[in-house]
Deep mutational scan, measured.
Amino acid sequence: ATVHVKGVTYHFDNPEQAEKFAKRMAKELNGEVHVDGNTWHVD
């Protein structure tokens, strides 16, 4: 799974980790999470 945060890409072997990371980053950055298959975007 892949997480894109403000133009930076993070790779996770575990999709659950990717989801938790994306949601945590969105919270910290006051952003929104969008999911597209195995790819998470934090804007």
Rank of each mutant, 00 (worst) to 15 (best):
Q17R: 07
E28I: 12
G31Y: 09
K6M: 15
E16Q: 11
K23A: 09
K6N: 15
N30W: 05
N38S: 07
G37E: 05
H4Q: 11
K20M: 13
D43R: 14
A26P: 00
G37D: 05
N38T: 10
N14F: 09
A22S: 03
N14I: 07
V8T: 09
Y10Q: 01
H4Y: 14
N14T: 14
T9N: 06
K23Y: 14
G31H: 04
H41W: 15
H4W: 14
L29V: 06
A26M: 04
H34E: 05
G31K: 05
V33R: 02
N14Q: 08
H41F: 15
N14K: 08
Y10H: 05
E16P: 04
E28R: 11
T39S: 14
N14L: 09
V33I: 14
G7R: 04
G37R: 05
L29I: 10
F21G: 00
W40I: 06
E16W: 11
N30E: 07
V35Q: 15
T39P: 02
H34W: 15
E19S: 06
G37P: 02
G31Q: 06
V35R: 15
A26R: 03
L29A: 04
E16I: 11
E16Y: 10
H34P: 01
K20G: 07
N30Q: 09
V8G: 05
G7M: 04
T39E: 13
D43W: 15
G7N: 07
N38H: 08
V3F: 01
E32F: 14
M25D: 00
H11I: 09
A1S: 09
W40Q: 02
R24Y: 14
K23P: 00
H4M: 13
H4G: 03
H41P: 01
D36F: 13
A18D: 00
F12H: 01
V42P: 02
G31C: 14
H41Y: 15
T2H: 09
Y10T: 03
A18W: 01
H41I: 15
T39W: 05
F12T: 00
K20V: 11
Y10M: 03
E16N: 08
L29S: 05
H34L: 07
N38C: 07
E16C: 11
K27H: 11
V5E: 01
P15S: 11
H41V: 15
G37Q: 05
D13Y: 07
V42N: 02
P15V: 12
F21V: 03
L29C: 08
K6P: 03
V8D: 06
D43A: 13
V42L: 04
A26C: 06
A18K: 00
P15N: 14
M25K: 07
M25V: 09
K6G: 14
N38Q: 07
H4L: 14
A22R: 02
E19C: 09
W40F: 13
A26N: 02
W40T: 02
D13V: 09
E19H: 05
E32K: 14
D43Q: 14
P15M: 15
W40V: 03
P15C: 10
V42K: 01
G37S: 04
V8K: 13
M25E: 03
N38F: 10
A18E: 00
D43H: 15
G7Y: 04
T39M: 11
A18M: 01
G31M: 15
Y10S: 02
D36S: 13
G37N: 06
H4F: 13
N30K: 10
F21E: 03
G37L: 04
K23D: 06
E32H: 15
F21L: 02
H11F: 14
K20I: 13
L29F: 07
K6D: 14
D36H: 14
V42I: 09
F21P: 00
G7I: 02
F12C: 05
N38L: 10
Y10N: 01
E19K: 07
M25T: 05
E19L: 06
K6L: 15
V33Y: 13
D43P: 04
K20Y: 10
N30V: 05
H11Q: 08
F21N: 01
W40N: 01
Q17V: 09
K20R: 13
E16A: 12
K27S: 10
A18S: 01
F21T: 02
F12S: 00
A26E: 03
E32C: 15
K20P: 03
V8A: 08
V35N: 12
V35S: 10
G37K: 05
E28D: 07
H34Q: 06
G31T: 07
N30A: 07
P15G: 08
D43E: 14
V3C: 04
H34S: 10
F21A: 03
L29D: 03
D43T: 15
K20N: 11
A18T: 00
N38A: 06
G31S: 08
E28T: 07
V42G: 02
A22Y: 01
Q17T: 11
P15F: 11
N14E: 09
D43F: 15
R24E: 12
F12N: 00
A22C: 03
H41G: 03
K20A: 15
M25R: 05
V33F: 09
F21Q: 01
E32Y: 14
V5Q: 01
H34I: 09
L29M: 09
V42T: 02
G37H: 05
K20S: 12
E19W: 07
M25F: 04
A26L: 03
H11S: 07
E19Q: 06
P15W: 11
D13W: 07
V3Y: 01
F21R: 00
V35W: 14
K6V: 06
V3M: 01
K20E: 14
E19M: 08
P15L: 11
V42H: 01
Q17C: 14
E28N: 06
M25S: 04
K23I: 13
A18I: 00
A22Q: 01
N38D: 07
V8W: 09
V3E: 00
T9V: 15
P15E: 08
D43L: 15
T39L: 06
K6R: 13
D43V: 15
V35I: 08
G31P: 01
L29Y: 06
T2S: 10
G7V: 02
H41N: 06
G31L: 15
K6F: 15
A22F: 02
E32S: 15
K6H: 12
G37Y: 03
V3L: 02
Y10F: 09
W40Y: 13
A22W: 02
F12K: 00
N30G: 14
D43M: 15
K23T: 09
E28S: 07
H41Q: 06
V33A: 13
R24F: 13
R24L: 13
V35C: 08
A18P: 00
A1I: 13
V8I: 13
T39Y: 07
T2F: 14
V35D: 03
A1W: 15
K23G: 05
E28C: 13
Q17H: 10
F12M: 03
V5H: 04
T39D: 10
E28L: 12
W40G: 01
A1M: 07
K27L: 13
A26F: 02
F12Q: 00
V35H: 13
A18N: 00
V5F: 07
G7C: 08
H11K: 09
M25G: 01
Q17F: 07
Y10K: 02
H4S: 09
H11L: 09
K27P: 01
K27W: 12
N30Y: 06
D13S: 12
K23W: 13
Q17N: 10
A1V: 11
V5P: 00
Q17A: 14
D13C: 10
G31R: 05
V3S: 01
E28M: 12
D36T: 12
E32D: 11
V42A: 02
V5R: 02
A22I: 02
V5C: 08
P15D: 09
D43Y: 15
V35L: 11
D13P: 11
K6A: 13
H34D: 04
M25L: 09
F21D: 00
V42D: 02
Y10P: 00
T2M: 11
V33N: 02
K6Y: 12
R24D: 11
H4R: 13
G7T: 04
A22N: 00
G31I: 05
G7W: 05
R24N: 08
H41M: 10
T39F: 07
H4C: 08
F12W: 03
N38W: 09
E19T: 04
T9D: 06
T2Y: 14
E32T: 15
K23H: 13
N14A: 07
A1T: 08
E28P: 02
H34Y: 13
P15A: 14
V8S: 07
K6W: 11
A1P: 11
Q17G: 06
T2L: 10
K23R: 13
T9H: 06
K27R: 11
A26T: 03
T9E: 08
D36W: 12
A26Q: 04
K27M: 13
H4T: 14
V33S: 05
V8F: 11
N30C: 12
A26S: 05
E28H: 08
A1N: 07
Y10I: 05
T39H: 15
R24T: 09
F21Y: 06
K23L: 14
T2A: 08
T2Q: 10
V33K: 02
G7D: 06
E19P: 01
E28V: 11
F12G: 00
A18L: 01
R24M: 14
H34N: 06
V33W: 13
N30S: 08
